[in-house]
């Protein structure tokens, strides 16, 4: 079956001064898949995501999202982004943060925005009291969930999640994984996850991409496990990875 590529990256080169981060990196993300990106610290996972969404101007290469090279508002209505530190606007309450895309992009009538915000808050497991709180009054985990609710505000077709479960307790992280799977199922989302959480990786992702040696290698977990590269071997055959894999099999 020929699948439609939502994101196409060709020959991406990113450098910071003398330091090369990505060297002719190629990647395709297909419609309806959950792609998990792994890589050591500083390997350029976040830079890759920022290059895709247009926040980082890359040196060379070509990136197309939904077949387009430059992103107008119609593309921005089709994606939702969860930033590593939440990226919530500090002068707005949680509810107002979630309402931003509804108001600014979709122009949803005011009378149902409140109710939709309530729905989203509830969906990500936040209590109603959280709605009127400012980001500075929320705990780290709650900030993550508000940010996720904002990313999901318009049921975007393409979701970027940068370390979504980092800083969450295991129960919340597991619930988060379930939520991602459910959403993917009911909305046929394409999800691009950067994560170090091996449980999330094995539980939710249909395909993995490992950034090593300035390039990306993709495949299923078992394919990557057999890859002959020291970092990949360490990563996927390390004790924590095996434990996570085992717990997945038990499920």
């Amino acid at each position: 079956m020929k699948r439609k590529a939502v994101i196409e990256i060709q020959g991406l080169v990113n450098t910071f001064g003398d330091q090369v981060i990505h060297d002719h990196l190629n990647l395709k993300v297909y419609e309806g898949e959950i792609l998990g990106i792994v890589g050591g610290s500083g390997s350029g996972k976040t830079v890759l995501m920022r290059s895709i969404i247009g926040l980082h101007s890359y040196d060379k290469g070509e990136i197309r999202v939904f077949g387009q090279k430059s992103f107008q508002k119609d593309v921005k209505a089709q994606w939702g982004i969860l930033f590593q530190n939440g990226g919530l606007i500090s002068s707005l309450t949680a509810a107002e943060n979630i309402a931003i895309p509804m108001r600014e992009i979709a122009h949803i009538p005011e009378k149902i925005i409140d109710e939709l915000v309530g729905l989203k808050l509830n969906r990500v497991g936040l209590p109603p009291e959280a709605a009127s709180k400012y980001p500075s009054q929320l705990s780290g985990g709650m900030v993550k969930r508000v940010a996720l609710a904002r990313a999901l505000a318009l049921d975007a077709d393409l979701l970027f999640l940068d370390e979504p479960t980092a800083g969450l307790d295991p129960i919340a992280a597991a619930r988060f994984d379930e939520l991602i799977l459910q959403l993917q199922e009911s909305l046929n989302l394409t999800i691009f996850i950067i994560t170090h959480d091996l449980d999330t990786l094995y539980r939710t992702c249909s395909r993995l991409g490992a950034i090593v040696d300035k390039k990306i290698f993709t495949g299923t977990a078992s394919q990557l496990q057999r890859m002959d590269h020291p970092w990949v071997q360490d990563y996927f055959n390390g004790p924590r990875s095996r434990a996570a894999l085992k717990s997945k099999e038990l499920l």
Partner: peptide, 17 residues
């Protein structure tokens, strides 16, 4: 999928306080 969505929205709906 539409059925599961409809179920989800009624499960998670609440009146904001």
């Amino acid at each position: 999928t539409a059925l599961s969505l409809l179920k989800q929205v009624s499960d998670f709906a609440y009146e904001p306080k």
